[in-house]
Design a binder for these strands. Structure first.
Lengths: 195, 195, 195, 195
DNA sequence: CATGAATGAGAATTCATTCAT
DNA sequence: CATGAATGAATTCTCATTCAT
């Protein structure tokens, strides 16, 4: 049986799914492949997940959960908006860059269908964006960020840059660490293009 | 008549594919559905495309082709980097915002698999990013953009913001026009978050 | 239960295949037809055979297996080469003549393609010919067969006569039993045409 | 356009079919493949043949026609049954051995289905066997062949040996000429196995 | 006669899911 | 809880044949 952190079968199945889906893509991955890697019978999968798609959802939830809880705690450790932003950028790139398999899933496989993305954006992604927009709002109040910004808009722009860096890293096959981009990203977000 | 001499049937198939894939997603769309909407027989599809996946590729090529050729021409109509950037932002959001079906495809369906994205990013997306990075480089030379930027990095960041706006627009079901965001995007890109 | 532990389903599929293929020919027989006759679902076929062609191969192996094992035991029950030959002829015609469906398969359907025949001739047919050529060699040593023969050549000639009788019987729609030819065949093989 | 003896398209098509079918097998050969090799359009095939199967029939007829007409003329050039037999054996092995592609067709591809073989055996194969059986009958009258033979049976046995030699030659990938077996075959047919 | 674009019926195979053990 | 044999719906693609030019 596959080794897994807390020893539950559910975890083993999710761990197996990350590897298989990252390697073969969601549609090319069969439930049987996940079951074999998880060391369980095909049918056992259905004791823990309603269907194949639910595995993908759960994968996403597990990953997003970390983003959100760690995001919050990082943000709480800083006082100024600029520092909070810096932490978010670092966290985002570090978390994605830590596990290439998981990154492939979040940057590519998770975006399979409108239906799927719809559900994602409504739920935890929205929560993540909310954290970011609160930081922006705080910066505006502090006087360190421009006041002519819509915090919601800004949070999406920030997320867009982070997301593109992550996708680019997944698609490039170079070994450079993703988090090495953190400073450049923060600089760009803070200062923009202009002199 | 030489095959595809006028492209009528090929175009009809691609047009049909855009609608069906946007509506049902790539995997839920059958070749038969595309054929019916295009008004041709199932087998006819295979006179113009080697297989189903090639339809998706061709869809992308057709769309990216417009981005690139129009992008270049827009850029050429301006002299300063700032104006060029403004034009690119407007063009990007306008083109994506013009056809929601096509937008769904480019923002969601086209990102189906690592294998697929790999090929996309290598080809025309790279060309598009090159156009952007040239504008950034010009801005640095002109002295209007910061000199401490890597133009390649900046082009990705810019693309990330544009792409996120586009995706957000596709996923939101509001009717607000996508290009109405152009000014905010340009402002953000130029000025960044800081005061 | 281990897959195929008792072979029940596999056997049912092969039995069904014999009937359907004999009746409609290999290419006109669909996997669904075989499945229906075997009383299993279409997909079940693929738990026991990799593909449709493998069913045909397995059919052949099952049939040839009998020829070889029974051939050997018949040969072993006799001492002189002449008697051994007589037994082989009887066995061959009896086994083929016992099941017209199987005979149709072995005389016609199994010879579908060069690729297919190539594999057949390399494997068990070669073994069968070896049994015959050993008998010929024994006859030469005993002094009952002509010494100016090549046993390999002779075994092919013998097989050719038997095979032609079998094919002729399959194609003729008379009811005469195939094994009724055994004496004439043996006589011909032993004495040839000349006085 | 493919070179062909008398320049007619029909001949070009048949010549092309021999090559393609020998190389890929009847079912793997498409009408388009034959058309391309023959240098005609797909539709043109149907001006000369009702359907794909008729090409195969015509191929067979053309080949069997040679067997029969040459067979007759060879037989007519000799007086004794023994010499006539010798000539038939030589002719058969020479004709088959002359063109490996055609040999593949006659030994393998032509035996595709019961339905097909049925029609073959009724028509020209029967005529060919009749020529042989007449030789046998003559030999019996002359007193050079055993009188206890059924000429029909004997003709099948003779054909069986010839056919097996031909098939064996097609399947073996050695270069030995098929007609080099003629003497051994005639010897075997005349003298049988016994001393 | 010749063309070749278009047709559309047809079939093998896959795989998510179930359920008897 | 766990198994894994069995299910059968579902879909891509091929290719013989037609027919308007």
């Amino acid at each position: 049986m596959a080794r897994n952190s807390d020893g539950t079968k559910r975890t083993a199945i999710l761990d197996a799914a990350v590897v298989e889906i990252a390697r073969h893509g969601y549609h090319q991955t069969t439930v049987a492949m996940i079951a074999r890697r998880a060391g369980v019978a095909d049918g056992t999968i259905y004791l823990y997940f309603r269907n194949k798609e639910e595995i993908l959802f759960s994968l996403f939830e597990r990953a997003m959960g970390r983003f959100i809880s760690e995001g919050r705690s990082q943000v709480d450790q800083e006082t100024t908006a600029i520092e909070k932003l810096r932490r978010i950028v670092e966290l985002h790139l570090t978390l994605v860059g830590k596990d290439r398999d998981l990154a492939i899933i979040s940057q590519v496989e998770l975006r399979h269908s409108l239906h799927f993305m719809d559900q994602l954006s409504r739920s935890q992604v929205g929560e993540y964006l909310a954290i970011i927009s609160q930081v922006v709002a705080q910066g505006m109040e502090e006087g360190s960020f421009r006041k002519d910004l819509d915090p919601i808009f800004a949070s999406k722009a920030i997320f867009g840059v982070l997301d593109e860096m992550a996708t680019d890293w997944v698609l490039s096959h170079r070994n450079k660490r993703l988090e090495s981009q953190a400073k450049a990203v923060t600089d760009f977000l803070l200062g923009g293009l202009s002199v």
